[in-house]
Amino acid sequence: MPDATGPDQIFQRALADKEIVLPRCDDCGAFHFFPRVLCPHCHGTAISWKPASGKGRVHTTTVVRRKPERGGDYNVCMVELEEGVRMMSRVEGVAPGDVVIDMAVTAFVGEAEGAPVVLFRPAEA
C-alpha cells in the first residue's frame, strides 16, 4: 500500500488504525470536516491533522424506521464535536429513540459494512 497522501486517504488510514484524526487549518486555526485540500473557512491550503478528543454532543437526531425482519429501527444523528465540527453518525448502546438533542457522547471507531467508521456512545456521567 502506498503512503496515504490525499485528505480522504489520511482520514481513512487513521480510522483503520482505530484513530480519529481531524483536519485543522494552519492559517486560521479552525477545524473542518469532511477532509479536503483547503480550509472552507479561510481557503488556506496548509492543513495539519490533530487527534480528535472524541467528545461531542448530539446536535439533531432521527430514527430511521425499518421493519424488524429487515433489522429494525436505527439512529441517524448529527454530532457536534468539541473541536467545532459536525459529522453524521449513529449513537450506539442506547435505543435509537432515546438519543436526544444535546446528549453528551463519546466517539469510537466501529465498523459498518466491513469498513471502519466513527460511531458514538453516551458519555460516562
Binding site: F34, V76, M87, R90, A112, A115, V117
Partner: peptide, 9 residues
C-alpha cells in the same frame, strides 16, 4: 461518502 456508512434514508 461521509454520510453513506450511516444509512440515512
Amino acid at each position: 461518502a461521509y454520510e453513506a456508512p450511516y444509512n440515512p434514508r
